[in-house]
């Protein structure tokens, strides 16, 4: 790890002042479960590290008129322990529980989970965010069992956040603070595809901080997350699906279906969403929705199985949601 300057500001404003407008100069430190690993591998070599855990306004979970407000430095453990999250947002609860080690849930934060960098082994091995050598993505002819089945332009890594699909399905917004004030975007819009091998996969500027997430009320919205995971302990899901369904009587009024770990950004399965409208949530309908969700998938040599996993994840998430009250 390269030597760095360390700061622990107590306000968002102060923290923003310490950031740089250039990526690579300074890094925000929340729980550190991802950042420290990146620094040890010299993937990140910040000159300055800014701890935001001392900033009170970034913590806490509270019910507001706009919905549930979750501070960026709320830990995954706090999130899973929260009563409102457990009862009203089972999909979010399930997604957070899927970060499958108590140690990581104790340290890792909601902001950090959304802003964590991809786990692609070519990126982590020092080949850049697009995992390229001589302008070519190594995943294409290489080992791509965990890579994208919905690649975008030259990006074959998968977005690693388990919370993102659930938050997107629930229609959550992200609040962002920067030198020119605050802005708010749908969580979906946090994620972009970098145009080059040293680019970034978040729409945040280098001197912006994700301050909070607001999840609109999910009363009456059936929601669930289904993860396909190879093992229970300390592992990433292979594919996840988060769904949020508004019902009208016994049929679907509108549906949100979002896939995780299948593309460089969470993938909104629009076709499945449209297909579900007006249907009741039967086994057959859920199976159909699973199939629609993977239309257009472009698997590579070693990850075609993820297409099947995505189908099943959507089906099972829908059937799980159908069981829920609301």
């Amino acid at each position: 790890m390269q030597a760095f300057e360390y700061a622990s500001p107590t306000s968002v404003k102060e923290a923003i002042g310490m950031l740089s407008s250039q990526w690579g100069e300074a890094d925000i430190l929340a729980g550190g479960t991802d950042l420290l690993a990146l620094m040890k591998e010299y993937i990140h070599t910040p000159k300055r590290v800014i701890n935001i855990k001392g900033i009170k306004e970034l913590g806490g979970i509270a019910k507001t008129a706009a919905g549930l407000r979750i501070g960026a430095t709320v830990t995954l453990d706090e999130l899973t322990e929260n009563a409102a999250v457990r009862t009203e947002y089972p999909s979010l609860h399930q997604a957070a529980m899927g970060v499958s080690s108590p140690q990581i849930r104790n340290m890792g934060t909601v902001g950090g989970d959304l802003c964590q960098r991809p786990r692609c082994w070519y990126f982590r091995g020092g080949h850049g965010i697009l995992g390229q050598e001589n302008g070519k993505s190594l995943a294409v002819d290489g080992e791509n069992r965990y890579h994208a089945i919905f690649p975008k332009s030259q990006a074959y890594y998968v977005n690693a956040s388990s919370l993102a699909p659930a938050l997107i399905a629930l229609g959550a917004k992200a609040k962002i603070a920067g030198p020119n004030g605050n802005r708010e975007v749908p969580v979906e819009q946090l994620f972009v595809v970098p145009s080059n091998n040293s680019g970034r996969e978040l729409s945040l500027a280098a001197n912006e901080i994700l301050t909070e997430i607001v999840v609109p009320s999910a009363r009456g919205v059936k929601n669930a997350t289904y993860e396909v995971r190879q093992k229970e302990a300390l592992d990433w899901p292979l594919v996840t699906a988060s769904v949020a369904i508004k019902m009208k009587g016994s049929s679907v009024a509108s549906a949100r279906v979002v896939l995780g770990h299948v593309g460089p950004t969470p993938v909104v399965a629009t076709e499945a969403e449209q297909m579900l409208a007006g249907k009741s949530l039967t086994q057959d309908v859920a199976t159909e929705a699973g199939k629609s969700a993977v239309n257009g998938a472009q698997p590579m040599s070693g990850n075609a199985y993820k297409v099947q996993l995505a189908r099943v994840a959507v089906k099972r998430a829908l059937l799980e949601a159908a069981k829920a009250r609301g």
Binding site: Y122, G142, E232
Partner: peptide, 29 residues
């Protein structure tokens, strides 16, 4: 069920020299 050293023929490198993708069972498995 889990363990495997994954080699990359393009770079000649081990892709999972870590405890994340070099997978081992935990109690629940």
């Amino acid at each position: 069920l889990m363990e495997e050293r994954v080699m990359d023929q393009q770079t000649g490198r081990v892709l999972n020299p870590d405890m994340e993708f070099y997978k081992l069972a935990g109690a629940a498995d």
